[in-house]
Design a protein around this nucleic acid. Structure first.
Lengths: 347, 347
DNA sequence: GTTAGCACTCTCTTCTAACGAGTGCTAACG
DNA sequence: CGTTAGCACTCGTTAGAAGAGAGTGCTAAC
């Protein structure tokens, strides 16, 4: 039995109707609401076939049909193929990117906005700093034995660390050290800071050996730790609005999972292979996390300065509005990368 | 009719039992579970009196009683009076305060932890910078026409701003400007930066008039705007676990309110009068926000460097565990202020 | 190949009756 | 006179039954 054009149309009708109502779809509903020019009885026959092919399922005998994971998969694959979809503009975004001063809060705001726009829950990971390059380091004396280290990387991400030192140090010496550090470290990734380089810097630092060592230490440590990538979730309560989660315990399990950042981290990164910028979708059972098997996840990666660094994901019910959501996501990524590449985040 | 000792004991038993079960409490339950040495019938008579006095109410005829707002108020007032309560230690806190690098993320973590500890929702406001003093300003050149301004205030709160300038500027000139700025602004609050002072600084800056003006502008603006104080909420989904919010719509309304930061801001600051460090409690109808009239809120303010700057609040059902919650909160504030006063936030 | 008709299935809603927890009142008790 | 046992009454909750409604699969006719 092959999947002819008419069966496909019926499948789409089922998906569409189920998206609207979250109720199993019957043959009469399709015949009435979708102009296919065939009677309910015919549709019933076709539906029987579609079920045999595994694209739809019946929750119980004598109920309507709902799309199966396989059905959604087919639908989504076709959708992704013909994706010249008009990209949906998100009005608020421009404002947002304009006024953000730190990338972390920008990401949080983007997540919030995307959740508001799509009415689903969103997850967004902070950039992985492993491959980002040092742009500037500055040492500032706060108290006699307390230094502030400011590190700026490309993409203008700013990190502040405070370190305590044993002996006081004057600002003009710090300025010299700052100069030495920038001289040696500009443009380097954290992997490129190796022992010979460190020794060379230490030589220049002379008497301020302790300070330089501590600074290098703290910079390396924080920049290379993967644990440092955080995940911001937003709109998790949107989940409560979906009838598929009217069982409050299921909903809470899911929300709890979304707060469990470490699980999300694995999930998000498992979804972004080596292809950048592509939209990836997982549907139902395809998701490894047990609590999410009633959901679908749409993800994509975003770049800062050309390198793949972070992931954005949208999680909703399986009957989610794939088309609009993908389109919003694409638009978002586009505007975001344009902005971040320019690094134009100040006033 | 006066509120004698036995009535008080019964009220406490009702509150205690209702805390455990969230079910109206009957006379037999009290007689069985609380060793008062009186029969259900006697308890019924006393309860009838307590109801007349307004301390308990009946959800409907022939059901048990639940405490009224007035009943909780009495209970809480007595609780606050005899507060030598053993302070409950929160194990995780020490760790948290140790490794935090920015006050914002520290506050977020504290909120999370407190939510986890108490199983209620928490709100925590970022410090109000109005009265905090400038400790250090640093200008860093990132790109020819892009500067990074780092401002450190007492309490070691660090703020970063990026500004764009028209003409390029060299780092050694920036160093001079940095020196001038620190020379003039050290120890000042934002209110103390007046026109004569600005003009005096501008004079020193000579050719770099534009830069200095922009820097001063951005520093003043961000430090004095009250809008800058943010509120972090945490554990909002804990609300779903309480039977009083089994009506999912009510729960969602409340959660939405908790995400509406501006309303929370008013609420939190309305609760902290001019007395520092005291625990304040609002119960049910005492809360101005309509969606929260089924809740109680416990707040207190926290200090950095001796001045009142922020507020922490815990929101739960009216039958919340006031004693433990207050005790956790007190312990938290204690440890936090000790840490922040020392400003020991780096490694 | 398509469609009308019909018996059948299964869920959801509605209605009723029974149950149970709890009260208030009255009368008896120490 | 305070305390207690007994009892009728209230009201919310639960369980079960009946009926409605949506939808299917099959058969036979077009």
């Amino acid at each position: 039995m092959e999947l002819n054009d008419r069966k496909m149309k019926i499948l789409q009708a089922i998906i569409s109707s189920y998206f609207d109502t979250a109720e199993p779809v019957g043959s009469r509903t399709i015949s009435k609401n979708y102009d296919l020019g065939i009677s309910p009885a015919t549709i019933r026959n076709e539906m029987s076939d579609l079920e045999e092919l595994g694209f739809i399922v019946q929750p119980h005998t004598s109920s309507g049909r709902i799309p199966s994971d396989k059905g959604y998969r087919l639908y989504v694959d076709i959708l992704l193929e013909n994706q010249k979809a008009q990209i949906k503009k998100i009005a608020l975004l421009e404002d947002l990117v304009q006024k953000a001063d730190r990338i972390e809060s920008l990401l949080q705001d983007i997540g919030k906005m995307l959740a508001k726009e799509t009415h689903y829950a969103t997850m967004i990971s902070t950039p992985q700093y492993k491959s980002s390059k040092i742009k500037n380091i500055q040492l500032i004396c706060l108290e006699p034995t307390k230094l502030l280290v400011v590190v700026v990387t490309d993409g203008n991400t700013i990190k502040n660390y405070m370190i305590n030192i044993k002996e006081g140090i004057e600002q003009n010496i710090l300025n010299r050290l700052t100069f030495i550090l920038n001289e040696h470290l500009y443009g380097l990734t954290v992997e490129q800071i190796n022992l010979p380089l460190i020794q060379s810097i230490q030589k220049y630092a002379e008497a301020n050996f302790e300070v330089i060592t501590k600074v290098l230490d703290v910079v390396c440590q924080t920049m290379q730790s993967t644990d440092d990538t955080d995940i911001y979730t937003s709109g998790t309560t949107n989940i409560l609005k979906f009838p598929e989660f009217s069982n409050i315990n299921k909903a809470m399990e899911l929300i709890d999972t979304l707060e469990e950042k470490s699980a999300l981290k694995t999930l998000l990164y498992s979804m972004t292979g080596n292809e950048d910028g592509k939209i990836k979708i997982k549907i139902g059972e395809e998701i490894e996390v047990a609590e999410m098997k009633e959901c679908s996840i749409i993800t994509t990666s975003y770049c800062i300065g050309g390198e793949m660094v972070g992931v954005i994901g949208i999680i909703g019910p399986k009957r989610m509005d794939y088309m609009n959501t993908i389109s919003s996501l694409k638009y978002l990524i586009n505007s975001m990368e344009k902005k971040l590449l320019k690094g134009d985040k100040g006033s």
